[in-house]
Design a protein around this nucleic acid. Sequence first.
DNA 1: GCCACCGGTGGC
DNA 2: GCCACCGGTGGC
Length: 370
Amino acid sequence: MLIMTSSSAILTGEDERRPSEDGTPTHSHRRRWSTPIDSGGESLHDSCTVEINSGHESPKCREHGGVNLDDFFSCSSDNKYSFYLGGEKSQWGASEPPLLTDPRSIAPPRTRNVSGEERRGRSVTRKQDLPPFLTTLDCNGRPRFHHRRVRSEGRLEIASVAVDSPEIVSVRGRGGLRIGTLQLQLLLSCVEMEEEEIGKAARARAKKEVAQGRVIDIYAAQCDKCHKWRVLESQETYEDIRSRMLEEPFRCDQKHASCEEPADIDYDASRTWVMDKPGLPKTPKGFKRSLVLRKDYSKMDTYYITPSGKKLRSRNEVASFVEANPDFSYAPLGDFTFTVPKVMEDTLPPDARLASPPSDKCSSNKPFRG
DNA sequence: GCCACCGGTGGC
DNA sequence: GCCACCGGTGGC
């Protein structure tokens, strides 16, 4: 069973090239985006189209749903939208796109009706300011999307992309095109909800910024049979499955899914994964188990947040708290476990990986047995 | 003064 | 060597 620090819904790829309006072959196609390694000085990309189909709820364009999308987007009749990138050869060529350093500096979307022809004609992005393609970044500047790296005839193809949130909230940037998702806001919303739950006292205490980008935001379990990963809808569900996992290994059908269906998510380095131990008890009602990844990715820290918002760092602190607050004596001490998940080194971002010594690698193709 | 975060240590 | 635990500290 794994949990990890980023989330996504899935955008899949399908090669469906179509000619340009004047009949000239272009690289415009649906749900596929390829980047040339070497253009030989030619302008290879007239435009590229990536149709984004969120996993939960389709993103909506202004015409169809009122969400402000930049004019890089248009909406098709089936309420999916397309992302248009005009321009030339990617300045990053075959290499990984560089990370944006400040994903929060995203300008608000513009609202303007642009016809497809106008969009194509104005070649919105040129070589010098071509952004990391389809880069959705977390608050640490790391990509959120799942990117199946496939090379074909020297081209890097995005075969699948996972977007964290059903809606793209902002697209634009002078130094490049940036795609932000609601993920960060969702994360903050979660914190706010949590504070609502734990009351005003806790809200007053919560002066400091939360460890953005270093908290778990996807819970997943691996099917014992097909070894595919299934995303679980909540921490509670995850903990429930985890607590029973030794006696009842997780299977796709527990999530009302079939092993024949594609995995919800793949284990890869597009996000940091941490592996939890099966059999750990569920968090007692009223408490919340919080896991925070250290900045250097060296390990996680476990906290239990009490109904009053107090953070408990050890079993001793839990015991003291329960002793001082007999109302919570319903919560067995044994149900508080400070065992931390293992940080999967092979999913660390490159900079973190450089800082840490090499060690055993895990492969996504093998079943995990915590 | 509070708290998030990190480093160190002792027990296993 | 790993891990649970907790003291220290720097930033707010």
